[in-house]
Design a binder for these strands. Structure first.
Length: 267
DNA sequence: ATGGCCGCTATGAGCGGA
């Protein structure tokens, strides 16, 4: 199937905050079987690498590379083909104790799975950490990536880029996930050379990737669009579709996030 | 939205999430 240096077929690229890969194990395998993505960025795996379910994923036909952590955070990349040039963390002078990013190359596409800090509350220490983390993400792109090459930055960014991405902008105005400083910090990441391919394919509002577990939030569509696939221009030109898999938010034992899926044509 | 949930932790009430 694969010939060295030649891209043979389209790539289905997805990102999903699973909110514990152990709690979501059966649903993840069912979703992989149903969607058959080529590459999947996972966030909030919430498990150390020693307990990551490599075996059942391999049985389902997926390689996995991970940056795990006990209880919190944790990111991974699943793929049909073996990941090339895996980089864990930011590899900068300030080693992060939190497992929030992993990158690898698949058929010439650099893919980065990120779990941006939540920030908890505007003005809190965690909020300051979030803003500085987004600055480090921009620096990481500058240092280790090339905006002229095919690249996808995917994950739970924990920022709703505009009020169009918020079910009730008045209620969320200035709140964490929606504040001006967070939006500016995310925009500065995008200014490196990234496009929001979901928004490029969907101009309308009311389309979200996260809904609170509580009450009727999903039923009422009280959600936020905080999970994103951002790509460089050369890869955006190859993106034929980008969708949010809302159905996967439904049913028993869901994650509170839905997957986002992009279809990329051959180079 | 008044609040409503979920997953984690050497299992129990507290933390964190968004």
């Amino acid at each position: 199937m694969t010939r060295t240096g030649v891209q043979c077929r389209a790539m289905k690229l997805a990102t999903w905050n699973v909110n514990s890969i152990r709690a979501r194990h059966d649903r993840l395998l069912a979703w992989l079987a149903a969607e058959a993505p080529d590459v999947v960025c996972l966030q909030e795996t919430k498990v150390e690498d020693s307990a990551f379910p490599f075996e059942s994923l391999a049985a389902a036909g997926y390689h996995a590379v991970t940056l795990g952590q006990r209880s919190y955070n944790g990111v991974a990349l699943l793929s049909r083909e073996v990941a090339q040039d895996v980089v864990r963390g930011f590899v900068d002078d300030d080693p992060d104790e939190q497992a929030r990013t992993i990158a690898a190359t698949f058929r010439g596409v650099r893919v980065i799975s990120v779990y941006v800090p939540n920030g908890q509350e505007v003005g809190s220490d965690k909020y300051a950490y979030k803003l500085s983390w987004l600055q480090r993400l921009r620096s990481y792109l500058e240092r280790t990536c090339d905006p002229s090459q095919p690249l996808a930055l995917c994950g739970d960014m924990n920022v709703a880029p505009t009020d169009l991405d918020v079910h009730d902008p008045a209620a969320w105005h200035g709140a964490v996930l929606c504040s001006d400083a967070e939006r500016a910090a995310l925009q500065r990441v995008m200014d490196w050379g990234l496009q929001d391919v979901f928004r490029a394919h969907h101009a309308e509002g009311g389309l979200y990737s996260w809904w609170d577990y509580r009450g009727v939030a999903l039923f009422k569509n009280w959600g936020l669009r905080i999970d994103h696939i951002f790509t460089t221009a050369t890869l955006a030109a190859r993106c034929t579709a980008c969708t949010i898999d809302r159905a996967t938010r439904k049913g028993p034992n869901p994650s509170d996030h839905a997957p986002v899926i992009a279809e990329l044509t051959d180079a």
